[in-house]
Design a protein around this nucleic acid. Sequence first.
DNA 1: TATGAATGAGGCTTCATTCAT
DNA 2: TATGAATGAAGCCTCATTCAT
Lengths: 216, 216, 216, 216
Amino acid sequence: MSLEERREREKEEMRKLILDAAAEIIFLDGIDKLSIRKIAERIEYSPSIIYHYFNNKDNILNQLMSNAYQKIITALSSAKLSSDHPVERLKDATRNYIETALSMPNEYNAAQLNSSPDVLKYTASLFRGATNKNPALAFLCDCLKDIHKNAPRSESEIELMAQMIVIAAFGLIMRLNVEAELEEKQKYRLIDHFVNVTILQMAGIYTNNMPGGKSI
Amino acid sequence: MSLEERREREKEEMRKLILDAAAEIIFLDGIDKLSIRKIAERIEYSPSIIYHYFNNKDNILNQLMSNAYQKIITALSSAKLSSDHPVERLKDATRNYIETALSMPNEYNAAQLNSSPDVLKYTASLFRGATNKNPALAFLCDCLKDIHKNAPRSESEIELMAQMIVIAAFGLIMRLNVEAELEEKQKYRLIDHFVNVTILQMAGIYTNNMPGGKSI
Amino acid sequence: MSLEERREREKEEMRKLILDAAAEIIFLDGIDKLSIRKIAERIEYSPSIIYHYFNNKDNILNQLMSNAYQKIITALSSAKLSSDHPVERLKDATRNYIETALSMPNEYNAAQLNSSPDVLKYTASLFRGATNKNPALAFLCDCLKDIHKNAPRSESEIELMAQMIVIAAFGLIMRLNVEAELEEKQKYRLIDHFVNVTILQMAGIYTNNMPGGKSI
Amino acid sequence: MSLEERREREKEEMRKLILDAAAEIIFLDGIDKLSIRKIAERIEYSPSIIYHYFNNKDNILNQLMSNAYQKIITALSSAKLSSDHPVERLKDATRNYIETALSMPNEYNAAQLNSSPDVLKYTASLFRGATNKNPALAFLCDCLKDIHKNAPRSESEIELMAQMIVIAAFGLIMRLNVEAELEEKQKYRLIDHFVNVTILQMAGIYTNNMPGGKSI
DNA sequence: TATGAATGAGGCTTCATTCAT
DNA sequence: TATGAATGAAGCCTCATTCAT
């Protein structure tokens, strides 16, 4: 079986090569400039060969989207051990998530705006019970439970809270990508406020008062 | 003048026909699948005639975007007079906004995800001082000021709050559009929670406690 | 008949209007940018009406070409009376011709490069006996005969001489138009040399020696 | 390598096929009627395949122009060794040049009337010092220097002379192409006169007298 | 006389995909 | 496994021309 294994491995490498090239093109030119020809050019093969590794262009795109999502999840989990205090963990993770997403705007947009089942498998967050399938939600729920451990909420309440946070973070990232000309300073002002204030409000922590205004 | 008037009316109708067709295509296939050819096919005219009514494809798109924008603004302002109580007004307006946006998903997406200056002129919300240019933000700020009239916040704090709300609403709408297969029930659960709880948290109203859990 | 006459006059005026507009477009944008629509725009009528005055675009073009040629001929004849001395007249006329042609490069090119019989009727210069049809040749032949009146050449010889001059002048103008980036100074150096030396050589006047080199 | 070689050869053949078709179209309809579609039709392939062999339409045109240029240069240089006597060489070369040009009228016209820098690189003849860049001028200057070696002229005078000859030859070729209906007999009469008389006059050889009239 | 609507052909070009080799 | 040739559909757009009014 060694031969077949090696073949499979080589095939896998080629697939990766193609996906990387595609990712680069998307990063540089945007998703609708991606074409089989451009991929072929970049990997220095002929366009036709790509069809040996993927059925068609959509296939490639879907693979790509899922991969992008994986990256973000990985980034998220790096925050898992960051602090004992759940609120700190929540803030760290959110900031991580936002920054990772902003570092690969095209893939993030493409993945998060893609409605194909292949991609939604990874990105869907709104259905009831999504926590069990979606690591980002799962992580948030853990934090939220921890935060409210003295006056426990129902699973359902916690999930809704987490979903609202995910939704809002998504909105922030998306608009920052769209309004790309925004000044850096204002960009970080918004992110800071989101992480330091808004999330905590959504997590049900803050009272009436803003946090002393110093961060504003 | 009757002749000329009738002609003008007919021209306007044709323009509307074209715009409707375009909207439908965007709705079905997404914005980057819109083409002059597809529009022509749908209205059962030759492609060239479209250039009789619009200078070029971008023209059509811009018209479409600004129409979408108008609809939303109209929806918003209908909430203006809805109630004396600012919290109610806030909730009404948000719900209105969300529902209007969801009623024309692809136009909304197209408008809100478009980075061209022409469109951003209407949709940009994140820059400092956006309140002065963006009616949705302006409306939110008015409510927020009213809500906090007993312990006034700075203009800047209020704007940030409003921006966070806009961002979150945008995130919600966007994800609902992407996860279009979501069950209706869950969809309205999320919207209700957003309008009845999340917004109020973001507006700095709610304390630690959820509102009795009745809406969950 | 007064009514019909007036109608005809008005029709003629419209035709002129159209031709003028066409000429202007050709002058500004070059001949292959000429279109019925552009003409219509310029005269502030609808494109269709143009077909009331001309059968088609080619018609317009042909009319235009002949007109351009007429202008040049007119310019030529202004030299007719310039001097008693035939050599001076020859030089004057040639310079006039060249300068008029250079002042309307697009029309000149278009007219002179057009092979349609309608235009050739005016521009053809090479056939035997062309002198009788072509005023430019006729004028040249007159000068040449005058110049050589002491040792008369045959009509045929004179015509050949004139044709060579016409050909050469045409070559000069054409290349100056093509090599439009040429420095002004060099441009006039070439024209001067052509008028002061080359023509005289072709007219059989000069001997071995250049004219003292002062003009070079 | 045989496979690759054969492929390359076939590719070259296809390129030639395309260029020939283009030349034919230009010959029949003029340069601004050339289109990818027409070429495709003529070679009985689909339009898109043409982009497999050339990057774009301009590419094809440029190839065509430079081929035309090469042909002429080759024709010219074949006259280089034709005779010891410089006057004979001058006459031979000129005749060669004219005949080569007339054998590919539309390519010649297209090349010589093209104002794009890419083409002018090859065809520009009027600027001061053009002799150093333009083989045709260079060849002429060599002859002229040789002819006048007993009473040398300045480089500058020689270049002007050569330029006048080039201009006149260009004018002759061009008008022969435009007046394509001219009788063969008259056509050769003009060429003969140009080569046997006019050039020599322009080269500063002939005196007052025509060469015995025998050629007329 | 004059118009606006409409078309079909044609302009360049890019692309996903198939197929023979 | 890999290639190059080839196509047909599609992208945007311009134009000459016709026709009903």
